[in-house]
Design a protein around this nucleic acid. Structure first.
Length: 375
RNA sequence: GGGUGUGUUCCAGAGUGGCCAAAUGGGGCAGACUGUAAAUCUGCUGUCUCUCGACUUCGGUGGUUCGAAUCCAUCCGCACCCA
């Protein structure tokens, strides 16, 4: 499923290709999040042509609640339902175990959620989640795990990890005994947990490595622990995961987080940050972050991002965008979402080029300084 | 011309003797956001020190009172009704 093309000489950065039946994904890659079957505020045309997204996410928990798995099955899978012909990856609902703590109850069997929509009780088990993900039909499906909080103590983290492993066995048993429903191949990625504890992360990585799946995810990071701990855990895990399989760092992150991840051998990233922060008025650029609500842009009639690669960067001025955000006009949300996603895809594309040409490290070091500026 | 009502901090609008620098909403300013319960949330929004605290404000002026945004007189503005 994965072709490793180039490994950086001065870091663990890699360039490669993930092959799926919906097309190849050039790595390192950022995957826009489309939780409920839409990358919020962005039309498919812009996602494809302007942002140049190669793969997007969907979420099992959310899609199960709405529109419901039967509708997706009837549509012929999520690709057809939302009209996206490139690869899709679905998260399993493991993140909701973390983010919806007050409306869920965890047992060995699975997780009982009280629907955040109408309150009805739903039991998610490793088996039912695999069945749902089969029906959604993503190219890459994530195992059902617990995204353990970064602040968990060691005892909790260990128990959580072990349960995730037991659930993983059940996920694999179910997934491997059920067919692809729509005529293309689906791939199940297990998830390394272990919180911020080196030995737990090592245990988890070794256990997963031996399963010999098509790709691996690193989960439970950027959930409350210090960034340095996150980087450290990535190194620990990537030292163990096989070189010839793609590695996906779940839910990360800021542009600088992503460069640090790439440097440490991560191939795939996803995060709500470009879209959510965009909707909340913040944009990332190669020269730093900008809060477009700020007064200083009030009469700045220069392009939104003169260095940006998206058409919105050249077509709209900062003053105009600030006005749209202040007036709560939906076009503002759309423009900033498109900008941020285009920037993220540009960033990982540049990283890939620099890995291929062999100067990733100096390029990364220089970018880091600029990315974190506040403009 | 007569009558009634009204004037509060950027706006709207509470407050009708001390617990009022003054509710609440809006606006403004800033911050947060990491496998999306998020077009959301948080803080600040008279001045000065910026912690305690001090000072100046509720249309103007003059009173009553220990004490007034709140009561009285008068003037000014605005709204509506009657001629």
């Amino acid at each position: 499923m994965f072709t490793l093309q180039q490994t950086d000489t001065r870091s663990s950065a890699r360039a490669g290709v993930v092959h799926t039946d919906h097309g190849d994904i050039l790595t390192p890659i950022f995957m826009p999040v489309g939780t409920v079957g839409t990358v919020k505020g962005v039309q498919r045309r812009d996602l494809e042509d302007d942002i140049k997204a190669q793969i997007i996410l969907g979420n099992t928990y959310h899609l199960y609640l709405r529109p419901g798995t039967h509708i997706l099955h009837e549509a012929g899978g999520l690709h057809r339902f939302e009209g996206w012909t490139r690869p899709i990856l679905t998260d399993s609902g493991g993140y909701q175990v973390f983010s919806l703590t007050d409306i869920r109850k965890m047992t060995e069997e699975g997780v009982q959620f009280s629907s955040h929509i109408d309150g009805r009780k739903l039991l998610f088990t490793p088996e039912s989640v695999m069945d749902i993900e089969r029906e959604i039909g993503a190219d890459i499906v994530m195992a059902f795990d617990e995204c353990c909080p970064g602040t968990a103590d060691r005892a909790y983290a260990k128990a959580s990890m072990e349960r995730t492993h037991r659930w993983l066995d059940r996920c694999i048993a179910r997934f491997d005994s059920t067919p692809d429903l729509y005529g293309y191949r689906q791939h199940l990625f297990p998830i390394v947990q272990g919180c911020v504890y080196t030995d737990l992360r090592q245990d988890a990585a070794k256990r997963l490595r031996d399963l010999d799946r098509d790709g691996y995810a690193i989960g439970g990071l950027a959930v409350g622990e210090p960034a340095e701990k996150m980087y450290e855990m990535i190194e620990v895990v990537n030292d163990i995961l096989p070189q010839d399989k793609p590695r996906y760092l779940m839910g990360v992150g800021t542009p600088w987080n992503i460069l640090e991840g790439i440097e440490r051998g991560v191939d795939m990233f996803d995060c709500v940050m470009p879209t959510r922060n965009g909707r909340n008025g913040m944009i990332f650029t190669r020269n730093g972050v900008m809060n477009m609500r700020n007064k200083k842009w009030e009469n700045d009639f220069t392009p939104l991002d003169p260095d940006g690669t998206s058409y919105v960067d050249q077509q709209y001025t900062r003053a105009y965008v600030r006005h749209l955000i202040h007036a709560q006009e939906m076009l503002g949300l759309e423009i900033l979402s498109i900008h941020n996603l285009a920037f993220y895809l540009w960033l990982v594309g540049e990283a890939r080029q620099h890995i291929l040409t062999g100067d990733f490290k100096p390029w990364k070091d220089e970018m880091m300084q600029r990315l974190m500026n506040r403009l």
